[in-house]
Write a protein that binds this DNA or RNA. Structure first.
Lengths: 209, 209
DNA sequence: CAGCATACTAAACAAACGTTCAGCCTCTGA
DNA sequence: TCAGAGGCTGAACGTTTGTTTAGTATGCTG
């Protein structure tokens, strides 16, 4: 529901950036031409480069805009609670798609965002341990990293998860409830009931080495 | 350790396919030219199209080869246990990278692979419930889908997880042990100790609607 | 009013792209 | 021994690409 406004309200520069974010996220940066972006924004191709210098400059501007949108008002330097990350995930499709590609392309901004989420989640989980609503972990840092990875699953595998769940879009209310309800159940009660899976895994590993 | 052989042993066709898999996975299909693939394979650009018809034909051949590699000998139509998926994840870097991009590009083969993994995991978890080593779930199908998403985290977010853990490569023995040990701990004992996180989440959701 | 920066466009550019084509080897089967 | 097929190459083709350049319109500042 965020990021809603009419296109004609925007400056051409903003329209170009929005078109780029949308198309880059949809197709990947290299499948999208400057001309296609210009067409979607309703301007000439030359204006794109007038404002952003080059196609790569436009990509960097998209990265920066992404970070700006996701960090929000910036009251906290790190993304430090799950519901905040959760709302990021539910948010506008173009941003989610762009973010997924930025992660895969290892853009520096996306990497910084990831690290920031890990740092924030580690603090948040640590606080939970202190207050008793999070279980202690043998390796809290590794757990925070994996936790963030799990949280980002609907970002990077959105289409596949939606298809597997038989839903059109995970952002629909029903699908979101089903998804996060199940994930929270898994995170709260665990998936495996005892140590049998872990010992089986360790046995396989030892056999292989 | 799989997929080891000397390059000169391979037919030109196989060398082209391997080069394409490597470069496509590294850079993305559109950032890689037919000429670059030909150069890495040590052949002329024309031979690439002689064997595969077109660049897209080569991409499809890579998809098919990926599926062939990952399904293994095909004793089971579905990928039905976690250790099998785990070994896929640890396996050769080019394949892992290519798989991540195939997921993002929603290639039909990758989608089928994902669905197959969900189906297999659902059966595997169901068996675990029957035998008592997996906890029952309110929505077993959704749980299987999310479980597969979580298993694939090191595939699609490999570089970020490795960096967050301070490791060069998750496939190194030490890093693998640390990663899977922590993940298994999270899956076995759970992350959240009680229902407080879930109720907090539901409260936030209700407020927003 | 002149002067100047800014927003913007049409047209053109060189480079890189996927692809085609004609032809050269080398092997195989008759 | 000859014909044909398949692996393979060098050179070229037309298209699309990102980018540049020259120029117009507009609106602000002195």
């Amino acid at each position: 529901m965020l990021f809603m406004r009419s296109d004609s309200d925007l400056t051409a520069r903003a329209r170009i950036r929005d078109a780029a974010l949308d198309l880059f996220g949809r197709e990947g940066v290299n499948r999208v031409s400057v001309r296609a972006i210009a067409a979607q924004a309703g301007v000439s191709p030359a204006l794109v480069l007038h404002h952003f210098g080059s196609k790569d400059g436009l990509r960097k501007a998209c990265d920066a805009y992404l970070v700006e949108m996701l960090r929000g008002d910036g009251t906290s330097p790190d993304l430090d609670d799950t519901s905040r990350i959760g709302s990021m995930i539910e948010d506008a499709t173009p941003i989610r798609r762009y973010l997924a590609r930025a992660f895969l392309d290892e853009s520096p901004d996306a990497a910084a965002l990831f690290d920031s989420m890990v740092a924030g989640s580690e603090r948040w989980l640590e606080q939970g341990v202190a207050e008793g609503w999070v279980r202690p972990a043998a390796d809290p840092h590794a757990r925070a990293a994996i936790y963030v990875g799990w949280l980002l699953t609907p970002v990077v595998l959105h289409a596949h998860l939606a298809r597997a769940l038989g839903e059109d879009d995970l952002a629909e209310t029903g699908a979101t409830l089903r998804f996060s309800g199940t994930a929270l159940e898994m995170l709260t009660q665990g998936v495996f009931a005892d140590e049998r899976v872990r010992s089986a895994y360790e046995k396989v590993r030892n056999e292989r080495s």
